[in-house]
């Protein structure tokens, strides 16, 4: 996979501000399928974009997978139903 090598990528990004904003929108699922094409090209051609993308992706993954859900108190649903019964 030549995606993993940096040899063919330029080392300076032409416009990090614009590129990073776009990459972050793509990661957040805001760009749909056209985003995937743009992404492929950026990652293949630009080293700063490549690195930024992988860091941002890692951040999103750990947040999603490691910020464990707080265990919900068992009585909560029941107590909501009881309170609701009173107001009905």
């Amino acid at each position: 996979m030549n995606e993993e090598t940096s040899g063919s990528r330029k080392l300076r990004c032409d416009d990090t501000s614009k590129c990073f904003e776009l990459l972050e929108s793509i990661l957040d699922g805001e760009m749909g399928d056209p985003g995937k094409e743009v992404l492929k090209e950026k990652l293949a051609k630009c080293q700063p974009c490549f690195e930024h993308f992988h860091l941002e992706q890692a951040i999103r993954e750990v947040l999603k997978n490691k910020c464990t859900k707080q265990e919900v108190p068992k009585e909560l649903a029941q107590s909501i139903r009881e309170k609701l019964h009173d107001v009905k």
Binding site: T16, S17, K18, C19, F20, E21, E24, P48, E51, H52, H54, L55, Q57, A58, I59, E61, V62, K66, C67, T68
Partner: peptide, 17 residues
């Protein structure tokens, strides 16, 4: 939109919950 740190993706993945 600038990258503000030199934090690496690998270090992030190694972190604990």
């Amino acid at each position: 939109f600038q990258g503000t740190t030199d934090l690496r993706a690998e270090s992030v993945k190694d972190m604990l919950g």
